[in-house]
Amino acid sequence: MTLNPNSKIYIAGHRGMVGSAIWRALEANGYSNLIGKTSGELDLRNQKAVADYFRTEKPEVVIDAAARVGGILANNTYPYQFLMENLQIQNNLIDSSLKADVQKFIFLGSSCIYPKLAPQPLKEEYLLTGPLEPTNEWYAVAKITGVKACEAIRKQFGKDYISLMPTNLYGPFDNFDLKTSHVLPAMIRKFHDAKIKSEQLGARVPELVDGVELWGSGTPMREFLFVEDLADAVVFALENEFTDNLYNVGTGVDLTIKELAELIQKTVGHTGEIHWDSSKPDGTPRKLMDVSKMEQAGWKAKVGLEVGIRRTYEWFLENIETFKEVKI
């Protein structure tokens, strides 16, 4: 389909980190007919409510940026919610889109859909070729189901439904709750809190400088994508017709968790020690995305990690009294 500035675009999860970034990117590109509902206004787990909303609003395009998300601790603690609620949300959105004759649908997933020990970098064809990482398999199984549902619709009904699989995301409006956040925002929060505590204690005395304890060994390697780059990729996918159903979205560059910690520590200005708790799980040893398909399609990430972390920390400081903490 051909989009125009007045095309009606529904963004599920438009208040979250990803959804709000997509909303801002679409507005910046001249799209003026954007619609969204908060979770209080529309419970995406409710099949009838979602179907009724689609029949009333009749969106032309749907972007699924809604999900229950969290880090290793949250996934391990609430496996049923991570499986069931994500299935409910995405199934209702995908099925209602099909029945409402939505012509273009973008499903957003995660690099965790790929097998734990898949060859690196991760190619799209590695999907379903091996066991998943146990600490987040519940979320991964749900997202794999969404990918396959969109693929089935594309195959059976010929609609332009595609899946974009971003690597680890971070940026403004991230979740900084230490119980449910991902590794990068959790580190920002930990280093910032330790820095403030040290200043309050009187950091002139070296032994009063507060250290930071981090999970694992620091040796796993991870790739990180600034959320505004993902939003840019979504706009690109809306404005272009892709030949396949599944595309990785990332930078194609990774670093160790230890290197990430040191970069965040430097950005925040914390001067204490870093203590690694090797009794805690590391997760997947490496998770680097092969992004050649997106690059061949004409899109490439623009924001470097150091710049992205600085911009994220600046947002954190500006919103420190009100930033989102997710309660489960």
Rank of each mutant, 00 (worst) to 15 (best):
H14F: 13
I22D: 13
A25R: 14
A25Q: 15
E27T: 12
L34W: 06
L34M: 11
E41V: 04
D43Y: 00
R45Y: 01
N46L: 05
Q47R: 15
V62C: 09
I63Q: 06
A65E: 07
A67P: 02
R68C: 04
A74S: 14
T77Q: 14
P79A: 05
M84P: 00
E85R: 13
N86P: 07
L87F: 14
L87H: 08
L93R: 12
A100K: 10
L108F: 03
S110D: 11
I113V: 15
I113R: 02
L117I: 01
A118K: 02
L128G: 00
T129W: 01
P131A: 10
T135N: 14
E137G: 03
K143P: 02
I144Y: 03
T145L: 05
T145S: 13
V147L: 12
R154N: 10
Y161I: 03
S163W: 03
L169M: 11
D174T: 05
P185L: 13
P185C: 11
R189T: 14
D193F: 03
D193G: 10
A194R: 09
K195T: 08
Q200W: 01
G202C: 01
V205T: 11
P206W: 02
E207G: 00
L214H: 10
G218F: 05
E223N: 08
F224Y: 15
D232V: 02
A233T: 08
V234C: 12
N240W: 08
Y247K: 08
V249A: 12
V253T: 09
L255H: 04
T267K: 12
E273K: 12
D277H: 06
S278Q: 11
P281R: 04
T284Q: 14
R286A: 12
D290V: 01
M294S: 15
A297E: 12
K302Y: 04
L305R: 10
T312V: 04
F316L: 09
E318I: 01
E318C: 05
K327E: 08
